[in-house]
Nucleic acid binder design. Structure first.
Lengths: 152, 152
DNA sequence: TTACCTGCAAACAGTTTGCAGGCCG
DNA sequence: CGGCCTGCAAACTGTTTGCAGGTAA
């Protein structure tokens, strides 16, 4: 059972200590912006945000800190097909999968515990120790099935 | 019901015609290499493969053709966290999900019929008529768990 | 004090694009 | 024959890295 992290700074401090690393002002500032409920950031967005608080901060520091948070398991890195990479806080176990309408793009967060279990099983069966997963279900939603639509 | 494409060249020809584009030798050569059952390619891998058949072919052409196939819905583009982007044929129902090692990037094609069924069920439960899905399971593979690696 | 960390700018990798000539239809 | 396509190399984008000076512990 993975315990949800609910105090990012504390969790990061522990991680840094374990690694012989330091909690700097920049890192403190970045995580303060980063860890907001439901947030998701591109590196650039976060950089702009942090920069507003302290213009002297460097872009590389933001990148380095995001990678740090990822390695510390405090953030999740997601890459999308449209060339966008986002990082999102990993706090408070709000895992879900995505159900997406191919017609109108409507997206629902869904979860099926049985699937979650089978996923773990499936990974283990192949010798993998599962860490996480992403699942996107595509379909046509009820509204769009009824609605008129143009064609190519 | 989406009809599986079982003759890539034919399907591409149709797409190209519709768009006022042309079926060149290079494109023919590339799709010949690309469309192999179970295949998945990085742009570089495919470039190397095609190059062996015709050394005069340019890398940009491979990139352009992959994007073309993606737009024509004949290929699927997948991006993984380890910075790898692969393209895979979308032909005739060789559906599978992906099991990815976060350590070494090794990727396995996997399938669990029970999960497939639950996915359909889950989508329907929310009023969606399912068309397709993508599932990525991340974990650490056996080799990497045993292998030497620097540790915290 | 001594690593570690930072900002800067240069380096990098993967992908896209501009151009002059080539080829499909 | 006209316009799309190609190979080449340069451009681009997002990210990482080397370095000299700053800073947490």
């Amino acid at each position: 059972m993975s315990k949800p992290v609910d105090n990012p700074e504390e969790a990061l401090t522990a991680y840094l200590a374990k690694k012989g690393m330091k909690l700097t002002n920049q890192r403190r500032m970045i995580i303060q912006e980063f860890f907001q409920p439901e947030a998701h950031w591109t590196a650039e967005e976060l950089y702009q945000k942090v920069r507003r608080a302290d213009p002297s901060i460097g872009q590389a520091t933001v990148y380095r800190t995001l990678n740090l948070l990822r390695d510390a398991k405090l953030a999740r890195e997601l890459r999308f097909s449209n060339d966008v990479t986002i990082f999102e806080p990993r706090t408070g176990g709000s895992h879900h999968d995505h159900l997406i309408c191919e017609e109108c793009g409507k997206t629902l967060a869904v979860l099926d515990e049985r699937i979650e279990i089978l996923q773990t099983e499936l990974a283990r069966k192949h010798g993998f120790e599962p860490t996480s997963h992403r699942m996107y279900l595509y379909g046509i939603c009820e509204d769009c099935r009824n609605a008129p639509k143009e064609h190519d």
